[in-house]
Nucleic acid binder design. Structure first.
Length: 236
DNA sequence: CCAGACGTTGTT
DNA sequence: GTCTGG
DNA sequence: CCAGACGTTGTT
DNA sequence: GTCTGG
């Protein structure tokens, strides 16, 4: 699964260049570095019309175009690669609206005897990478407001991630990003595999657990945590 | 036919 | 237990 | 993902 | 919207 990630890169120009995308309306030059991006929040997305790529923001948690209420998006934060075509919520987005989500670290929680320990995963060279994702647009029937939203695709873990969890997000290799965006669905489906490249992992602070918290000290080892944080110490 | 779901994960 | 909100 | 809340009434 | 279950 992938329920949190980070995007520490803050220069829109650099992110846009990396993904050959034109920033959409409403972007400033500098973004706040994000260490703890959680479901329901706005995330950066690269989408393509077949020719041009655009960098936009969308809400994490897919709201299908047919949804009566947006609350369904709270649950559609990950889509299993194995069953994309069987799920009404994902079939159209997979065929028509694939996208990239720029990311530099994703987090998985390791089950412990008591509690869960968050672990940060990044590429060996700390490079920015693309998560495979789908998007949809929903019109709020009351306000007529258009809401674009996104879901991240998960697959089996590679060797490193399997030490922590039984799922991981699909990371696309740079050479596959264009195929994911504009290729035939059957070809795009072939890209939904565990990431084969070099990655690294490290345990991080349980301050990550609170979606309201977003600072660089999240990346410190868990031993730096104050007893107040986390749920590993039983109450007397 | 209509009604109801539409999703993933880990489990105190 | 199950849902919503971040 | 985790944290935190967890209700009722009558109405189209 | 589209599929499954009754």
């Amino acid at each position: 699964m992938c329920g949190r990630f980070s995007l520490k890169a803050s220069e829109v120009k650099k992110i846009a260049e990396r993904f050959a995308a034109k920033p959409g309306q409403g972007f400033s030059c500098e973004l706040k570095p994000r260490y703890n991006i959680a479901p329901s929040q706005q995330v950066l997305v690269v989408k393509s019309d077949g020719t041009n790529r655009e960098l936009v923001q969308m809400k994490w948690g897919l709201i299908p175009h047919w949804a009566k209420a947006p609350a369904i998006g709270n649950r559609l934060i990950n889509a299993r690669a194995e069953t994309l075509n069987d799920k009404p919520a994902y079939r159209d987005p997979f065929n028509l609206r694939r996208c990239l989500v720029p990311c530099d670290t994703f987090y998985e929680w390791k089950a412990l005897g008591s509690g869960r320990q968050p672990v940060a995963f990044s590429l060996a060279d700390d490079a920015l990478f693309a998560l495979a994702a789908l998007w949809d647009a929903w019109i709020n029937p009351e306000t007529r407001e258009r809401v674009e939203s996104v879901v991240l695709i998960t697959t089996a873990p590679n060797e490193l991630v399997s030490t922590v969890h039984n799922r991981m997000p699909v990371i696309l290799q740079p050479n596959d990003e264009e195929l994911w965006l504009t290729g035939a669905p059957s070809a795009a489906a072939n890209l939904l595999k565990p990431y084969p490249g070099e990655m690294k992992a490290k345990e991080v602070s349980q301050r990550l657990n609170s979606a309201a918290y977003d600072g660089p000290d999240l990346l410190l080892p868990p031993t730096s945590d104050l007893p107040l944080f986390g749920n590993t110490s039983p109450r007397p």
